[in-house]
Design a protein around this nucleic acid. Structure first.
Lengths: 325, 325
DNA sequence: CGGATTGTTGGGAACAGATTCCAACAGCGC
DNA sequence: GCGCTGTTGGAATCTGTTCCCAACAATCCG
């Protein structure tokens, strides 16, 4: 039954036999192991870790013995990994990285930080609103700290669902499924171009008017990109795309280099495009005004710090509040 | 400078001070810690872990001392987490889960497995082709093992780029950027419906002909969903969507329940829809024939096992080979 | 070509340090 | 005061490290 060895990863509770094996793993061994892998040499690895070479040798042997696995091929000129070793190396690296996060985060708490909030947000939110909002938030709550990661809107939703973070910010178009969603901000899209572009004299633009010119696309998973593609096909045309770039600053630089038109939020242009000698013209289409929303898994069961952050973000834009999802 | 506390996560090499802190973390303490959190009671946690309560108490105190952090509020009726404790709990959980993976994987090697390949694939590949292909691959290489995770095509690309897996399979439409891409298989989309549906008598269908009826959508990030949305808007219409579901089997069940039409690959229908008394009609549009591609970061530097798998997958469909990206 | 040299990993005994256990202790609520 | 909680102290134990030495392969040198 070869198919039995197809492992679709999933969250399981450990069997007793597994916990027994788990106890044979320890972090110093792991650390030593990656050192040996890095150096491909036991002696240098031992020096680097400030420990006797024989001790390292013993640990590696014991470890191999404990799992009944050969990790290294012992060569005359050092140690080379076996396939089992390579597999271990991968996991060992991410485990150690995680432990490091623990150490860093805890030492932050010891220096007075009173709470962490893990956050996911799309690029638009990070570039335009979060710097000021978080700055103000920190001013009110000096002892809090935020771990912020950038992801496209769809993956923000997924991350919140999976518990990778407590609070997410994404485009309102994104399907937030079972998550609770609240209004955050509105966004206005502008078309960015060089001052010598044929459209540069216009005060406002319909998106269809730009379709006869080259465009510079954002990351293909970004909601701005998806939305503009949609609009183009709805108009029965296709966007003339020359390149996809990963950030608003990159869009502006491409525009500057005469690669075409860019489509980014107005405040993003104000932040990253200012001083580049470019022109930004508001989009007249209804979808030129977008909404960003806040998503959480369950507002009632947020941590104290998460709750604080959510309440703050919801209150920060006063003109138009309320629930959207 | 409140903004200094905005941490965009990134891969850093550890500073000396950090490694010193890192050494104060050990897995038994972590395991004990989550046990205490789970039980909210030190005594029960100690019992569960088969250790004296005093030992646990000491470990927790030493740990708090080492980082200068209070993890628990000691109450008369047990232990409650502080914010710092909650932060630690999150990281501790994922770390332990990782260690468990290490133990499982290594014990697999000890039982004869000679290599692991981490793979990401979209749903279409997993449902239609991978079971047979991997089965045949395992028959030829009994001692290999595969860790397979399902993701939408876009996230497959991202996962391969980030090194989460060695080999990915995704829709050819997905932008694979700097990755190397190879042809894998072709896919044919069929429209699934109940036998009493008005279109059930047709031999072949154009997608536009289905737009007057209700549709059942796949996950909104899936490439089939995105492609059909695109086709609908290109035809100047909108899809009448009643629901989005996460898998091909769910689509078929929804069709059976008279919720509308489904659009899935033909072989997926053969696998999951057989025996449900449904009708599957091929799509005549050119995009009804899709391509699945294999993506890797750098074929030249694949592990031995990864190389084996790549070569096998590329050779498995003989009628149309060759590079696509 | 032979032999010495340098580098490697592996093994055993003594030592130091950490971890554990048991028992007794202190705070809190009922 | 009883039952529950977590904490403390000291002794037994165990684990890990070091040091020294052996075995081995490659390389250099006479």
């Amino acid at each position: 039954m070869p198919l039995a060895s197809l492992n679709v990863d999933t969250q399981r509770s450990p069997t007793p036999a597994e916990t027994a094996l788990t106890r044979r793993v320890d972090l110093t061994t792991l650390r030593l192991f990656v050192a040996v892998c890095d150096e491909q040499n036991l002696t240098r690895a031992a020096q680097r870790e400030g420990i006797a070479a024989s001790a390292v040798s013993k640990r590696m042997n014991d470890f191999e013995l404990a799992f009944g696995v050969t990790l290294f091929k012992r060569l005359a000129k050092g140690m080379a990994l076996t396939p089992a070793g390579e597999a271990l190396l991968h996991h060992a690296r991410v485990t150690l990285l995680n432990v490091e996060k623990i150490a860093v985060e805890l030492s932050e708490y010891s220096q007075g930080v009173r709470g962490h909030v893990r956050m996911l947000a799309n690029l638009s939110a990070i570039v335009q609103y979060l710097p000021e909002d978080l700055s103000a938030f920190f001013a009110a709550h000096e002892l809090l700290r935020v771990d912020l990661q950038e992801r496209p809107s769809g993956q923000v939703v997924r991350g919140i669902e999976e518990g990778a973070a407590e609070i997410g910010i994404c485009a309102a178009e994104a399907d937030s499924r079972a998550l609770e969603a609240f209004h955050y901000r509105y966004d206005n899209l502008v078309v960015v171009m060089r001052p010598d572009h044929p459209l540069a004299g216009r005060e406002r633009l319909l998106f269809t008017e730009t379709l006869d010119f080259d465009h510079i696309g954002l990351h293909t998973a970004s909601s701005i990109y998806l939305r503009s593609q949609y609009a183009a096909t709805q108009a029965g045309k296709t966007m003339r795309l020359r390149i996809n770039v990963p950030g608003f600053d990159a869009v502006c630089r491409m525009v500057q280099a005469n690669m075409g038109l860019g489509l980014i939020p107005d405040r993003a242009f104000a932040v990253v495009g200012a001083g580049m000698g470019l022109r930004a013209i508001p989009l007249r289409d209804d979808w030129g005004r977008r909404e960003l929303k806040i998503v959480v898994r369950d507002a009632a069961h947020l941590s104290a710090t998460g709750r604080l952050m959510l309440d703050y973000l919801r209150a920060v834009e006063t003109d138009r509040g309320g629930r959207v999802g």
